[in-house]
Amino acid sequence: MTALRESLGKSGWAVRLAAGLAAFILFAVPALVLVATSWTEQRFALFPPKGFTLEWFGEVLTSKKWLQPFGRSATVAAIGTALAVILGVAAAIGVSRLRSSRAARAWRTVMILPLAVPPIALGVGLYNMGRWLNLSDGRMALLILGQMISALPFVFVLVAGAITRLDPNLHKAAQTLGANSWLIIRKVELPLLGPTILAAAVFAFVVIFDEVVLAVFLLPPGVETLPVTMLRASQETMTPALTAASTVVSLLAVLLLGGSQMVGRGKKGGADAP
């Protein structure tokens, strides 16, 4: 064991460098290739890029063709995230109150079920539900419902996990101090779960924003979310505007995820108690 560590110690930097390089190639290279094709002067998004132009970024950031789906996606994701967080947090707190472990298991299974249902199946189901209910004007609401359902398991699993890590005596202490359930949720549990709920919301937002199958199924022709526009662009023209749009979205996602991590860590550090 120590011999292994010693030999690793001598060549440790080489091992670490190799591992780092492998991770870099695996994760970063496809992303960098994509980014690189977005500044090419050619009319097709092909690697390696020829020349350098910001024309495609200009197109993406100014044309209605890209901005309108972006705005629609952001709106749908914001509403869907809000609903998924409210329902997911409520379900997670609810399951923590169940005395019977069998009922708790059943509830957990139901909550993560959407992960097991193929998006196509969910899409067909919602599409037929819309037809049956004659919701020709409510396709956007159906889409939000469907995407909220697909994001719900992520919120539930994250928050339910965080609740099991809370000190159970905090709940008991609040009870003995005279607090009713609502006060315990509002003043004890939600503040302590705050960083987790924030992370879950970011997760849900990204899941919904990137969702493409349900959007293709449910939205009428001419009404598109950003992923649908990108999908169509990849099938039709494949101009570098597609990869420019991808770059912008990826950048926003990285900022959002990174930012929420930072806030989460800051809060956790403040409330940390051994």
């Binding site: 000190d167 005596n169 905090l170 008991k172 609040a174 003995t176 302590l192 108690a273």
Partner: peptide
Amino acid sequence: PRDRNIGFLFQSYALFPH
């Protein structure tokens, strides 16, 4: 418990960390 008007001191104190 909340209607019994008791004070309960826990072994781990169970202070609210936030």
